[in-house]
Amino acid sequence: MANSDAIVGWKTITFGCHILEPGNSANFRTGDWRSQRPVTDKEKCIKCGMCWIFCPDMTYKQDEEGYFEADMEYCKGCGICAHECPKDAITMVPEEG
């Protein structure tokens, strides 16, 4: 997997090969791994947060109204959220193209 961020020279590589910026994997979008996306039916959603709790990719964020929404930059489309939703409020929808 080519990674343009990883193009470093020996003079510019970080000391000891340490990564000094915490959590910078967020710069890497895993959303394009996805073949299906979760869509939440807000009518059914009870804002319990199970989708957020059971997401292995830290994609869900709670909005001001208390609904949880998946960030498509990162969502890999695994479908755990839809499978675990106690109210069947989440549907996995195939990505186009």
């Binding site: 990883a6 193009i7 470093v8 090969c17 990564i19």
Partner: peptide, 11 residues
Amino acid sequence: ITMGPVGIPEV
């Protein structure tokens, strides 16, 4: 900081 990461072939 992260010490001891994976060195991909580019690195």
